[in-house]
Design a protein around this nucleic acid. Structure first.
Lengths: 262, 262
DNA sequence: TTGTACGCGTTATCAA
DNA sequence: TTGATAACGCGTACAA
């Protein structure tokens, strides 16, 4: 593999001049510039980016931690981040954790080792203190904390996909005092619930009212009342905050889309 | 930031010894080893992985090119790759191309610049020749080529999600000679089609037969006949081939799951 | 078992 | 406008 030293020799200039040309720095004569570009072409030269990283101390790589990307919520969030990353010429390194702490730690590891410049944690299983003690510098937390009372039975975990709708209905039917309404954190799951209810002849919204989440197209098709969340926008904001070190704890508006399941 | 030189000074040994301890190499006395480990702890030391990369010429980073990850087909494929990557201690760099050639080129770029050790291209828009001319070495192509006759009208592109089912039905209903059966390349879309047919009182399979793809849980819930593809396994294989430079052009079995839409 | 010294490929500083 | 040369942090022949 040819390197800038080779190029310098080929073009009859110093490595500094080659570097200047390669990075569009000023103060290079047209003549030498052309000589360098010639050499680049002739040798099929490509920068070794790792050397650049070592020299500059930056990688233009941003980590994103999330449980899975094949879920519409995280998928859209990721999309927002990704688009913004594209604009800033950043690449993303994805950490699909499946809610496993060990994988979250891998991300922290990469951050510490400087393989990524920054890290967006969209979901975490590990303790905040764990994050804290692993980092040599301060981190930012944008999550608002609420202390609302709730009924544990009425909260069902691990519902991410369409097919989980069946599980929910089963669970509800086994309850002594089943809820008469469901706030579902994904339109996909809501759609699954609606489908399952149809199969079992449970009337919606009479017997069971449902509000979805995200205002996905599937909610429109199946006429499901839902909450619109500006996920892509959230992703965009996250990226910007991460890349700039901003602290604009902006609140994004959510909107109720009323349809037929309530 | 402290580096191995600092550690060496702190522990009263040479950088070589520090490196040996850090990489679990043999030929280090317990005494010195402990001294180094002490220093590591005391200084909150972390390797600068970029320096390692430069020195070793490897990054343990593998690129994956795919159009989107929030689609069950690519989602599962990615899952298979990711799990295997985990085992081999590789990290993945995701290139979500949205079928844009420019983004595919970015991936090739990173490969050439040695920021990633290897690249798995799950989908491509660019020409094979483009890939070829961008690479300094040979690449492997595992795609079988078939030359089957087909009717262009009967092929509908850009159907990826549940909601695209509506589009399909609309298009079919506008045809002079609509097909009586659909082979759908995603169970999500198939489910959307089935739902849409229900809404419009189109009888399945009498008026329209449907075969899905992937045997996703949604297909089971909606009783859709489908083809089971070992996607995760495919992903696993892809990773192994990429990491080992294997050429085991293995053919994985697909299986028809007969249900109610045919 | 240990350490010296060099190479990896760039960028940055500073003097010319 | 140019070029020597010193970082950057680590791995590793090679010598001891």
């Amino acid at each position: 593999m040819t390197n800038i030293k080779d190029l310098a020799k080929m073009a009859g200039v110093s490595v500094t001049t080659v570097s200047r040309v390669l990075n569009n720095h000023p103060y290079v004569s047209e003549e030498k510039k052309n000589a360098v570009l010639e050499a680049v072409k002739a040798s099929n030269y490509h920068k070794n980016i790792n050397a650049v990283h070592l020299s500059t101390g930056k990688t233009s790589l941003m980590g994103v931690v999330l449980p899975f990307s094949d879920h519409p919520y995280f998928g859209l969030l990721l999309k927002g981040i990704a688009n913004q990353a594209l604009e800033y010429n950043y690449k993303l390194v994805l950490f699909q954790t499946d809610y496993m702490e060990s994988r979250e730690l891998e991300a922290l590891q990469m951050l510490m080792q400087k393989q990524i410049d920054s890290l967006i944690i969209c979901s975490r299983t590990c303790d905040l203190s764990t994050i804290k003690e692993h980092l040599p510098f301060a981190y930012r937390d944008f999550v608002k904390k609420y202390n609302l009372p709730y009924k544990p039975d009425y909260i069902m975990d691990e519902c991410y996909y369409f097919e989980d709708g069946e599980k929910v209905i089963k669970q509800i039917q086994e309850m002594d005092a089943p809820p008469s309404a469901l706030l579902v954190t994904s339109d996909q799951v809501a759609a699954g619930i609606v489908t399952c209810c149809k199969n079992r002849h449970i009337s919606i919204p009479d017997e069971l009212a449902i509000i979805g989440f995200d205002n996905q197209p599937i909610a429109k098709m199946m006429n499901i009342t839902t909450v619109e969340i500006p996920l892509e926008n959230m992703g965009k904001n996250l990226f910007l905050q991460a890349v700039n070190g901003d602290l604009s704890n902006e609140e994004l508006p959510a909107k109720l889309i009323e349809r037929g399941t309530v």
